[in-house]
């Protein structure tokens, strides 16, 4: 008989690891905050192909008139592209004038204007709001479904594990000051779906194994079930990581914005479905059982 992984037995260790990670994440969120991109705070990002290497100071000189605090960075394989980001949402006229200046200096075609993103600040707050609503709606619906198919306590444990994953993803964004734009919202909601998928597979096995164990032997029940599904949890997360990792390594920035939080979320989600969700359920059940016993006495 294979030895069981001690999830419930040593739950204190796993909870401690998670609590430390969550504390670091929340601490960083309070101290460093998040590095919000234009999707949230508004602004303009213009990318221009200059067809030649350039000095950022030259580019800065051309932009000064519109915004002195604009950021200028290189892009493209040969570093011939300039990315201009300002916190101002430039008007159509201003952008046209800006591009004309570059056009004149570097002798550019119209098509060398690779991309423009302008967002007015008012949109950001709305988006953050609707994302919160989406997350809450998704979690409530999942809770209802899990209660219906399993029991409420499974749902509660799963939701706590989810919140754990989301805090850690946000923490990574805060610690490394990665820019937060709208793809993160979609990614967070996908993590909701993905991480709960993992958790459900474990719970499903607990549900199935339950008759084989004593009424109050929650710890062995959990440890056996987690052990039985361990290979699946790891293999599935690994294949998904392979696919998403390839997107991150070889994809374009717009796709990387999705891939990165998904990768963090998948790792955290795998950890939480193996070590946190079932152990939590076990603790809740043990607590309920001891309370019931206390009432009887």
């Amino acid at each position: 008989m294979k030895k069981n992984i001690q999830v419930a037995e040593k739950s204190k260790i796993w909870f401690a690891v998670s609590l430390i990670l969550i504390a670091i994440s929340i601490g960083s969120l309070f101290i460093n905050g998040l590095n919000f991109g234009i999707d949230f705070i508004g602004g303009t990002i213009v990318t221009i192909e200059l067809n030649t290497p350039f000095e950022t100071s030259d580019a800065k000189a051309l932009i000064e008139e519109y915004d002195t605090s604009a950021d200028v960075t290189y892009a493209g394989e040969a570093k011939t592209q300039v990315i201009i980001s300002t916190k101002k949402d430039l008007s159509t006229e201003e952008r046209q004038a800006l591009f004309s200046k570059f056009q004149e200096k570097y002798n550019l075609e119209d098509t060398d204007l690779l991309s423009i993103d302008t967002v007015s600040p008012s949109i950001g707050a709305e988006m953050a709001n609707s994302a919160m609503i989406a997350a809450v709606v998704a979690v409530l619906l999942m809770l209802v479904y899990i209660t219906f198919r399993f029991e409420f306590m499974f749902g509660l444990a799963a939701v706590i594990a989810l919140i754990h994953d989301l805090i850690i993803v946000l923490g990574v964004y805060s610690i490394f000051q990665i820019q937060v734009n709208s793809p993160l919202i979609a990614a967070m909601l996908t993590i909701l779906g993905y991480s709960i998928n993992d958790t459900i597979v474990v719970f499903d096995r607990i549900r199935e194994n339950r008759p084989k164990f004593g009424k109050y032997d929650f710890a062995s029940l959990v440890d056996t079930s987690v052990t039985q599904t361990l290979r699946r949890s790891i293999n599935t997360s690994f294949t998904t990581l392979l696919a998403i990792g390839a997107l991150y390594a070889f994809g374009v920035p717009a796709v990387q914005d999705f891939a990165l939080p998904l990768m963090v979320g998948i790792v955290s989600g795998t950890y939480s479905s193996i070590f946190i969700a079932s152990a939590l359920w076990c603790k809740i059940k043990e607590f309920q059982a001891s309370k019931r016993a206390a009432v009887k006495n």
């Binding site: 989406a134 999942m142 479904y145 979609a186 709960i196 459900i200």
Partner: peptide
């Protein structure tokens, strides 16, 4: 069961996202 929960997230994204 595991796919339905992911589908829930997908549908919420579809109806509430833009």
């Amino acid at each position: 069961d595991s796919n339905v929960t992911t589908l829930i997230a997908g549908f919420v994204l579809f109806f509430l996202g833009s």
